[in-house]
Nucleic acid binder design. Structure first.
Length: 695
DNA sequence: GCCACAATGATTTTT
DNA sequence: TCATTGTGGC
């Protein structure tokens, strides 16, 4: 097959690049995934072993997509190192973490569990002042910085007392992690680097292994990830990175777009390739995106262009309030879907915060438009899923107190905090894991007979699961045993919770996932647990034909024929929380990401007032709106659309009651009965009521 | 150990 | 406003 077919000159140059450092600045929609995969295919064509190629992505979804495309291109492709940073580090640590004094059957905890551990520590210290979220943030930054921890904490701009407290908490936290035989997300990267630095022969092993390194979404790497890649590439210097500084929207999570500059400094002779031709959007949309992002200070100018032609104008709609805005979105979707024969899945609605989705949901629901919210409730964060995972983790890692505490009384076994405390004290005293302590449950002082029996039962059950795992039973089978033996399913069925059915379905889904997992090369329970920890959400290829709702952040990497950017208001987007120039610039990049998702048509909406934290707030239109040239827009406001003739069935807007539908007109056309979306049914005099017709 | 009510405090979240 | 978290009574 011809790898270069259909590529432009810049893309070809990137695909054909083999040795030495190279940076590809890939604008939105410039075909970067194609370039990455084709470059791998080209390397393989040139006789390079697939296993000598390391390709790093940020999401499992991106990694999976790349693998799929390669499998299509090269049917026998067996490269197993197309991974996220975290998954690659996990694979490395699984082989060598014992050199750092960790047990090889360590498990991974996610951010929530890390926060819970921090909360527990704070509670032990009777510290009710320190905010766990903040501490967690500091801890993450400390690890990602790769600095000496003592000096990192000493350099914090906090009072000395606080700094000392934080440092001491940090040490306790890390001590606990090791004790529990778990690592957090940051540890995966940092421990891997530690391994490389302390054991040069290990580093060399991987350097010889990964002769060709590729990193996607480089603008989103943090300092530790930058250093990790640099270490691995430092022997041969065959590092190929792809990124777009204008799409860096995660600096608040530790991403350092400055890493691109570091890269340019590290490799002054690197090849720089700019991909500016866009294959996604109309020129109108691209011009809008270019104009907005020009307001940011930038060291690399990019200008997206297309040969698709101008396309439709961007529609700008100014709504009275958030309900009006939502009604506009729903009405427009329903109209367009009918008129242009579009499927619902071609529409996407973006908002800055999840709280904004509600009004939009209600409007869509009212219009019978099917929709899906992306990213609000992640599969693996659901309580029922986490519970079952905790059973599995405890079976693998007997010392995982976090999991133990989570499920010892789920479903209810009559074992409360006091009992747990006694068990943990005993375990500490005798230097046993929590599960081992249960073996000697009769020796634990001050436990009732009933409780003892329950604990023995629990002990036997977990051991049985562990035995199954040891005998390499299929993960699905183990999950089945957990669901039944623990009584979890029965308890759900008996509970009478309104969402019990959904939960049961989710558990079924977990089982299905584990069945699929059985086909993987590495399919032990340990591997499954690592997968679960590293995959925050299941990317069920949404085959539903629904409108998609998500935050601007969630939209990154996606594309839709028709996009609604809602809440384009000062204080909402940009957020009232961003005040520094840097903050505003990041919001602007987020706006740029939003605009460039749209393929054919873009709608920008704002509301003159909206409900925030219980009270009404008036917001100015977003500054980003003014940064788009006027001639690209066709603007509609709720003003200037007086009701020419009130008839049953039209939608109207009332200054106080919001949007509603005229359901009847009585008294010779003098009085209308209007069913308001929010305010309910009202009778209003048409000559007096401040009504406007909704478009 | 469990349940009901009050107090709180609230962007964005690839792993 | 509203969902989550903590406290007090049983």
């Amino acid at each position: 097959m011809d790898l270069l077919a259909g590529l432009n000159d810049k893309q070809k140059e990137a695909v054909l690049h083999i040795d030495g450092p190279c940076i590809v600045l890939a604008g939105a929609g410039s075909g970067k995934t194609g370039v990455l995969t084709k470059r791998i295919a080209h390397l393989v064509d040139k006789g390079i072993e697939p296993n000598n190629i390391l390709a790093i992505t940020f999401t499992n979804k991106a990694a999976g997509e790349m693998r799929n495309r390669l499998n299509d291109m090269l049917p026998n492709f067996a490269g197993s190192w197309i991974q996220t940073f975290h998954a690659a580090c996990f694979k490395i640590l699984r082989m060598d973490i014992d050199k750092l004094g960790y047990d090889k059957n360590f498990t991974i905890i996610d951010d929530n569990e890390a926060k819970n551990l921090i909360k527990a520590i704070l509670k032990e210290e009777n510290d009710y002042e320190t905010k766990p979220e903040y501490i967690h943030y500091i801890f993450k930054n400390a690890k990602n910085s790769l600095e000496n921890y003592e000096s990192y904490f000493a350099n914090l701009s906090e009072p000395l007392e606080e700094k000392n407290k934080y440092f001491s908490l940090f040490n306790t936290y890390n001590f606990r992690l090791k004790e529990l035989n778990v690592v957090d997300f940051e540890d995966l990267i940092v421990l891997c680097i530690k391994l490389f630095e302390n054991f040069p022969n290990v580093l060399e092993k991987y350097q010889n292994w990964f002769k060709y390194i590729m990193i996607d979404e480089y603008q989103d790497t943090n300092y530790a990830q930058y250093m990790w890649a640099k270490l691995l590439a430092s022997k041969d210097g065959n590092i190929f990175i792809v990124g777009d500084p204008d799409q860096s929207i995660y600096s608040w999570r530790g991403a350092e777009p400055y890493n691109i500059n570091r890269f340019l400094k590290d490799y002054p002779n690197c090849k720089v390739i700019k991909l500016e031709k866009n294959y996604r959007s109309t020129q109108t949309i691209l011009t809008a995106a270019n104009s907005v992002i020009k307001h940011n200070e930038s060291f690399i100018e990019k200008n997206l262009y297309t040969d698709k032609g101008e396309g439709e104008k961007i529609v700008r709609f100014c709504a009275g309030d958030s309900f009006h805005e939502a009604a506009f979105v729903a009405d427009t979707i329903s109209e367009l879907a009918a008129k242009t024969n579009r499927e619902f899945r071609e529409f996407a609605v973006f908002y800055r915060t999840h709280a904004q989705s509600r009004a939009i949901e209600e409007s869509l629901f009212r219009k019978n438009i099917p929709y899906n919210i992306v990213g609000a409730h992640k599969f693996y964060e659901r309580k029922e899923i986490k519970d079952i995972i905790a059973y599995l983790r405890l079976a693998i890692n007997n010392n995982d107190k976090l999991s133990f505490e989570r499920i010892i009384n789920v479903p209810r076994r009559g074992i409360g905090d006091k009992t747990v405390e006694k068990i943990e004290n005993y375990a500490n005293e005798k230097n046993l894991t929590v599960l081992e302590a249960l073996e000697y449950v009769e020796d634990i002082p001050a436990l009732g007979k009933k409780v003892t029996g329950k604990l023995q039962e629990f002990y036997g059950m977990i051991n049985y699961f562990a035995k199954l795992a040891e005998d390499d039973a299929a993960v699905a089978e183990i999950i089945d045993e957990v669901l039944n033996m623990s009584g979890y399913i029965q308890d759900l069925k008996d509970s009478g919770q309104p969402d019990a059915q959904t939960k049961l379905e989710n558990l079924q889904e977990l089982k299905s996932l584990s069945l699929e997992f059985a086909d993987e090369e590495e399919n032990t329970l340990e591997d499954f647990l690592a997968r679960v920890a590293l995959v925050q959400d299941i990317d069920d290829v949404d085959n539903d034909n629904t409108v998609v709702l998500m935050t601007y952040h969630g939209a990154k990497g996606l594309e839709f024929p028709i996009v609604f950017m809602t809440g384009m208001e000062e204080g909402v987007f940009p957020s009232y929380r961003s005040d520094s120039v840097e903050d505003i610039e990041e919001e602007r990049r987020l706006c740029y990401v939003g605009i460039t998702r749209a393929m054919e048509q873009l709608f920008l909406t704002n509301a003159e007032s909206r409900l925030l934290y219980g009270y009404e707030r008036s917001n100015q239109p977003s500054r980003f709106l003014e940064e788009i040239p006027e001639d690209l827009l066709s603007t509609y406001t709720r003003h200037g659309k007086p009701i020419v003739k009130a008839v049953v069935g039209i939608r109207v807007f009332h200054k106080k009651f919001g949007a509603g539908l005229i359901t009847d007109i009585i008294e010779d056309g003098e009085i209308a009965i209007i069913d308001f979306d929010q305010a309910g049914e009202r009778m209003l005099r048409l000559d007096l009521a401040p009504l406007e017709k909704l478009i």
